[in-house]
Design a protein around this nucleic acid. Structure first.
Length: 290
DNA sequence: ACCCAGGGTCGTC
DNA sequence: GACGACCCTGGG
């Protein structure tokens, strides 16, 4: 059992790090803004508050490991976003504008299991509702952590979520996604597939295929999982917003629904190369916010 | 009151 | 490959 203790860590003169951009760009569902404009979230069994003052970032939280180590990994602090942004900005004016708008975005390194389940829930759903469902699920099946006089709940592990019946899941407001979440959980519980084997798989196509064999995981969810929890910055998840913005910027088809996913993926690979996933995030955030 | 959309996926034709 | 259904909730 690991000691849970309050820890602090600060980062001076941090560039490419804006709380709003990171937490509201659509990659995560469990971070909420506080009255003082800081954000508090739960991830990988930790509760963390992040505050930015000037160019300095202050982390404080109840952590199950060294807070600096946790933050370096989760916030992708060893990746040079200044360089990524400059490479993307040079591609064209559209990307330049998107990068300027979302200049503080970082792709979080999220928990693989949590990301799989969260994005199964995201299918044909909206973000506020996705967040509510995940909170209810965590409150019922996760572990309680107290921080700053409030109660927080970790995202349920495979073994914890396994206790939920399809009806229990439906009760959280999941709708038709209940069976998908339940059946995917069973697959991991019975070790038909394992988190470790997914983490170790190097071939992006094999990995995608494995993910897509899970109930509720199609191409888009698989790509989000790879981008948001496996550092596959080269994959390009195509959703309604990306289809919309790509069509507006490059294709200009009258009926955007007629633009095929394949065309968009090829276009993204040509234009953005191995940074397509990060480009997707800037474009998504820019288009959805304006 | 009714219709439509929301970070899609699945079964069917 | 295209097409419609799908839980549910909020907004027009």
């Amino acid at each position: 059992m690991i000691d849970m203790q309050l820890q602090k860590y600060e980062l001076k003169n941090c560039n490419s790090f804006e709380l709003k951009d990171i937490f509201d760009c659509g990659q995560c569902f469990r971070w909420n803004e506080e009255e003082d404009k800081s954000y508090t979230g739960v991830f990988k069994g930790n509760v963390l508050n992040v505050k930015k003052v000037g160019e300095d970032v202050y982390f404080e939280g109840v952590c199950n490991d060294d807070i600096e180590k946790i933050c370096r990994e989760y916030f992708d602090l060893d990746t040079n976003y200044e360089e990524i942004k400059s490479r993307l900005s040079n591609i064209d004016e559209h990307l330049k504008k998107s990068v300027e708008y979302g200049k503080g975005i970082r792709i979080l390194n999220q928990d693989l299991w949590e990301t799989i389940i969260s994005f199964i829930i995201s299918a044909n759903n909206n973000i506020p509702r996705i967040k509510v469902i995940i909170e209810r699920m965590s409150a019922k099946y996760g572990n309680k952590i107290e921080y700053n006089g409030k109660e927080y709940f970790t995202f349920p592990t495979i073994n914890e979520l396994r206790k939920a019946s399809v009806e229990d899941l439906r009760g959280f407001g999941m709708g038709f996604r209940d069976k998908r979440v339940h059946d995917t959980t069973e697959i991991f519980f019975n070790r038909v597939m394992s988190i470790e084997e997914l983490q170790q798989e190097k071939d992006v196509d094999v990995l995608r295929e494995k993910l897509m064999s899970l109930p509720g995981v199609g191409r888009k969810v698989a790509d989000c999982v790879m981008l948001f929890s496996l550092k596959r910055y080269d994959v390009f998840p195509v959703d309604v917003w990306i289809r919309r913005v790509m069509n507006e910027l490059y294709i200009k088809e009258e009926d955007e629904s007629k633009v095929s996913k394949e065309l968009l993926q090829n276009l993204a690979r040509e234009k953005y190369g191995n940074l397509a996933g990060i480009a997707q995030q800037y474009l998504f955030y820019y288009r959805r916010s304006s």
